[in-house]
């Protein structure tokens, strides 16, 4: 079975997600794009698991999903806190880290 089609889809998904992270200003949209990137990675993992006929890739996909879930929890909490103080979801407004 040729994994090419799946890998291409995975790559396209990753790029879509990456461009979403870099180009969108809304924090929630950036989060969704990060999710898309993680899912692209999942797809690649599962594909290779099927190619090599081992379960390691699918187990790794589970790990990824857990990490994604944890990250969403923490990230949303941070966004809500920032939203409460700044009343804006734009990433450009969060410049407290500058020198």
């Amino acid at each position: 079975m040729s994994p090419n089609a799946y890998l291409i889809v995975s790559a396209v998904l990753f790029c879509v997600g990456l461009s979403g992270v870099l180009l969108r200003r809304n924090a929630l949209v950036v989060f969704m794009s990060v999710e898309v990137m993680l899912n692209a990675a999942n797809l690649a993992l599962v594909t290779f698991s099927k190619v090599h006929s081992v379960l390691d890739g699918q187990v790794a996909a589970f790990f990824t999903m857990v990490v994604a879930a944890a990250e969403v929890v923490v990230g949303l909490a941070i966004i809500i806190t920032i939203f409460r103080s700044k009343a804006s979801l734009s990433l450009d407004d969060a410049r407290r880290l500058r020198h």
Partner: peptide, 8 residues
Amino acid sequence: RLQNGSVR
């Protein structure tokens, strides 16, 4: 100048 605080 790299440290401009912008997350993006």
